[in-house]
């Protein structure tokens, strides 16, 4: 997939996150159970997973800056955090054998890490004033469950897109082969 498309996909999922947040708003007092959709972050993790660590870092940092500018507060917090986590995703993907379960655990771990750092950062800056346990039970658990499901949906979408790209590439190759054969036989 081209960078342009990948960026568009991440942007689209960041928008979807925003819409989901509007539909299922967070409880600011953390008295009720709530969750936060992080499809955009999972998306950039999945993209960074297939790239080199530097590309992963730069791509994730760009997505993080977009997140900061359009969807969140605290510029350039997400830019730096996403950049580091994107580089981690890319680095960790090379350490073992390729499997969906491994990919899931890496993304899940990075998601937990991102949420913990965000919680620490917002607690430090005074944006949220809630105990860790309350935050974890009333918000983080729901977030992890929702995003676990979202991961598999995203993985499926990426798989479909990948297969579509492969089919398209093969079709182009076949067309080129035919073209060369015709060129060789007829000279036109």
């Amino acid at each position: 997939m081209k960078l342009r498309k990948e960026l568009l996909i991440v942007f689209l999922f960041l928008l979807i996150d925003d819409v989901i947040e509007f539909i299922f708003p967070m409880d600011p007092l953390y008295e009720q159970f709530s969750f936060l959709s992080q499809c955009g972050f999972l998306c950039l993790c999945l993209i960074s997973y297939r790239t080199s660590w530097l590309t992963g870092f730069l791509f994730s940092a760009l997505c993080g800056l977009i997140q900061d500018l359009f969807f969140a507060v605290g510029f350039p917090f997400h830019g730096i955090l996403y950049g580091v986590l994107g580089a981690c995703a890319s680095f960790l993907s090379r350490l073992g054998k390729e499997s969906i379960l491994r990919k899931f655990w890496i993304c899940f771990m990075l998601l937990v890490f991102e949420n913990l750092i965000s919680f620490g950062w917002y607690s430090m800056t005074g944006t949220i004033q809630v105990q860790f346990r309350t935050w974890f039970v009333h918000h983080e658990l729901g977030t992890l469950i929702f995003n676990t499901l979202a991961f598999f949906v995203l993985e499926y979408i990426f798989g479909v897109m990948e297969r579509y790209q492969t089919i398209r590439r093969h079709r182009i190759q076949r067309q080129e082969k035919r073209k060369y054969r015709r060129l060789r036989l007829t000279g036109k």
């Binding site: 590309t55 730069l58 940092a61 760009l62 800056l65 500018l69 510029f75 350039p76």
Partner: peptide, 25 residues
């Protein structure tokens, strides 16, 4: 040192960072 893709990403990052800083300022 950098591939074409990485250079594009780097420039985009710098532009957004500068833009963001400008807005912050």
């Amino acid at each position: 040192k950098f591939t074409r893709l990485q250079r594009i990403l780097l420039v985009a990052n710098i532009v957004l960072l500068v833009f963001g800083c400008l807005m912050m300022g």
